[in-house]
């Protein structure tokens, strides 16, 4: 009886594993092709084993084209946006978790509503607001300095349209709702006792936040940060809408433009770009993974 059961279980497990292997294989193939093609001097649109390996596509991308610039832009904009998102989501999530005010629920639903509306539907009103802010900021910049070169530099950094600040803020705004929800849910699971214990240990509010709350909320920050980073990293619409100058191009835009070129498609170039494009997401994930799986238990009982 027992043996028959284990036998049956083994058979079921075997089937499950086989199915998983098949699915994984199916999922991995495109990545595999991208990886192979990126190093293949004769890359085509078909999967084939390269006869020799080359770093030429990467060299081409980084040196001959503006690859470095695109990477720099993407990392800077998305990195800053993720950082800002985490700061705001930390404060907002904590407040929404701890308050018992009547507006708690309405506000929570309002926040998630922002996320539910598809971004293209928001573009017109958002663009309007950004344009208005943009002219205000540029007026300020014009009064600050007479030097045209300085004006251009400041405008590049602080403009809301076709500037770094605008892209950072719009990405932050897009990623914030989900991040706030993640952090709120996470803080819900951290009992108030820890903060009270810290207060009685003589910790000021800042010390409580720095030495108790943030360490305890790390897995939450890792999850929220990872989602924010990956979503913003892959976002195509916002950079497309809010940038025009080539100096501000991000990786997805660069890839898109490369794809649109009139002459024949350079698969080696594109796949090299794709590899570089995928890399930060993988790095971000492996970085966050350590904290994602880290769970704290045993502090509170009963």
């Amino acid at each position: 009886m027992m043996q028959a059961q284990t036998h049956l279980e083994q058979a079921t497990q075997k089937k499950a594993y086989l199915t998983l292997v098949a699915i994984s294989f199916f999922c991995v193939i495109p990545f595999f092709w991208v990886l192979l093609a990126a190093f293949d001097p004769q890359a085509t649109q078909f999967l084939s084993l390269p006869k020799e390996l080359t770093a030429g596509h990467f060299y081409n991308l980084l040196v001959n084209e503006s690859g470095v610039r695109w990477i720099f832009n993407s990392v800077l904009i998305v990195g800053l946006a993720t950082l800002l998102t985490l700061v705001f989501a930390g404060f907002g999530g904590y407040a929404l978790s701890r308050t018992s005010a009547w507006w708690k629920r309405p506000l929570l639903y309002a926040i998630i509503l922002v996320r539910i509306v598809p971004p293209p539907a928001l573009i017109v009103p958002v663009y309007k607001v950004m344009l208005w802010l943009n002219s205000a900021v540029n007026n300020v910049i014009l009064t600050l300095t007479e030097n045209v070169e300085q004006q251009i530099l400041l405008s590049r950094i602080f403009s809301f349209v076709d500037g770094y600040l605008g892209l950072v803020l719009i990405h932050t705004a897009m990623q914030l709702p989900l991040a706030i929800w993640i952090m709120k849910t996470f803080f819900d699971a951290i009992p108030k006792d820890y903060e009270e214990a810290a207060a009685l240990d003589g910790a000021s509010q800042m010390q409580t936040v720095r030495r108790v709350l943030i360490p305890l909320a790390l897995p939450g920050f890792a999850a929220a940060g990872l989602f924010a980073f990956i979503n913003a990293w892959g976002d195509f619409l916002m950079p497309l809408m809010f940038t025009s100058s080539p100096e501000l191009q991000t990786l997805p835009l660069g890839m898109f433009r490369a794809f649109l070129r009139v002459d024949a498609i350079d698969y080696g170039f594109l796949t090299a770009l794709a590899v570089i494009y995928t890399l930060p997401a993988v790095i971000a994930f492996s970085f966050a993974r350590k904290y994602l799986t880290q769970t704290f238990s045993g502090g509170v009982k009963g």
Binding site: Y194, G298, G299, V300, K301
Partner: peptide, 12 residues
């Protein structure tokens, strides 16, 4: 100083 019913030891 206070000893909590839940102990509230910092888990990290």
């Amino acid at each position: 100083a206070m000893v909590f019913q839940s102990y509230a030891l910092y888990p990290h």
